[in-house]
């Protein structure tokens, strides 16, 4: 359980870093797109590592993180375009 909270803390650091970078990149659509992509990839990698450490990594879980990442990116690109 402690490990779970530690991993969630890491995720919050990643997401907070993404949000701060996103705000700093105001007015630069390309930088904001790159920030969105990097944050999403970090999230997917985090998910895979997290479930691997918990020893419950399954192909379905990987696909779930990848698909949610794709949905987030498509939504970001729709709004930023």
């Amino acid at each position: 359980m402690k490990k779970d909270w530690f991993f969630l803390f890491i995720l919050f650091i990643i997401l907070a870093g993404g949000i701060v970078t996103f705000f700093v990149s105001t007015g630069n659509a390309i930088a904001q797109r790159v920030t969105g992509i990097v944050t999403t990839i970090s999230y997917v990698v985090w998910g895979i590592l997290h479930h691997r450490m918990k020893e419950d990594l399954h192909a379905k879980v990987v696909i779930e993180y990848v698909l949610l990442g794709c949905i987030a990116l498509v939504l970001l690109f729709i709004v930023i375009s």
Binding site: G18, I19, T39
Partner: peptide, 22 residues
């Protein structure tokens, strides 16, 4: 067997912040 719901929520809250500040 599924992903971490709290992580999904945190991620999409971040995406919501991105979109609202974009």
């Amino acid at each position: 067997v599924s992903g971490h719901n709290i992580a999904h929520i945190a991620f999409f809250v971040a995406i919501l912040i991105f979109i609202s500040s974009m």
